[in-house]
């Protein structure tokens, strides 16, 4: 089953083609600072076209599509999902959405306790913990949004070396690394192989309803302007009270 994998969840744009568990080609762009996720909107379609051409296929040869559905960059995820959903509908082929951190751990060639990290800004991360062995991947902590302190705490009970991978590891690895832990940056994913496994196992997402999985904590804060006005009113009141 010829599957195209699309990963636009981070600053890196990663495309992959696989058939029968064998990688037929990958194309990876970016990762540089000035290449923000939203730029994927301009590169994604030409990149898909180039990869298919170079690998000797036409997009109409595709039998399925796998796409990273988040968490990650909001604009990038929307770009990837829109293209994946549109191509799946246009070609009438199955589609599967894959969580970012699962895609990362699958792509990482090592084994052991692995924590992929994505930067969620302001000392926060999207994180998960997996045990990867030659026979498979076990999820120990599901992907969620944590502060660095919360994630450090969540990992404190594991007496083994934990490998941090992903863009968040580059930024925050040093802050998380305790003795026995190795910060290690790694991006990109061989998504097509994982996607093909899922599609062959019968997993499907509806191209109309598949939505981004941002995994942001529900925000409890009020709009900044309201907050500011309330503060000003409070200041005014304070002025009146003071002699």
């Amino acid at each position: 089953m010829l599957v195209l994998g699309i990963d636009t969840a981070t600053d890196t744009l990663a495309l992959s083609l696989a058939d029968g568990g064998i990688s037929l080609g990958t194309l990876t762009l970016g990762g540089a600072k000035d290449r923000r996720p939203r730029e994927h909107a301009e590169s994604l379609l030409p990149a898909i076209d180039s990869l298919c051409k170079l690998a000797g296929f036409s997009p109409s040869d595709l039998d399925g599509i796998a796409v990273v559905k988040g968490p990650g960059g909001f604009t990038g995820i929307r770009t990837g999902l829109t293209v994946a959903k549109t191509v799946a509908q246009a070609l009438d082929i199955p589609l599967v959405g894959i969580p970012s951190l699962e895609a990362f751990v699958h792509a990482y060639p090592g084994i052991g306790l692995i924590s992929p990290l994505l930067d969620a800004r302001r000392e926060e991360v999207f994180a998960a913990l997996f045990r990867k062995t030659p026979s498979g991947i076990e999820t120990l902590v599901e992907s969620a949004h944590f502060s660095l302190d919360q994630w450090k705490e969540a990992l404190s009970g594991y007496g083994e070396e934990i490998l941090f991978i992903g863009e968040g590891a580059v930024r925050y690895g040093n802050k998380l690394a305790a003795p026995g832990r190795v910060p290690l940056g790694f991006t990109g994913s061989n998504l097509a192989i994982l996607g093909e496994e899922k599609l062959v196992a019968g997993l499907r997402d509806d191209p109309l309803s598949l939505a981004p999985d941002y995994q942001r904590l529900p925000s409890m804060v009020v709009a900044w302007k309201k907050k500011q006005d309330e503060q000003e009113n409070k200041d005014k009141k304070d002025e009146k009270i003071s002699p």
Binding site: R36, P37, F74, A223, K225
Partner: peptide, 22 residues
């Protein structure tokens, strides 16, 4: 994910109805 725009340092960001921003 508006911060992806204003943290990028690439252009001018203009936001109408900005009182709705969190």
């Amino acid at each position: 994910g508006l911060w992806e725009y204003w943290e990028g340092n690439r252009g001018l960001v203009v936001i109408e109805w900005a009182e709705r921003l969190l």
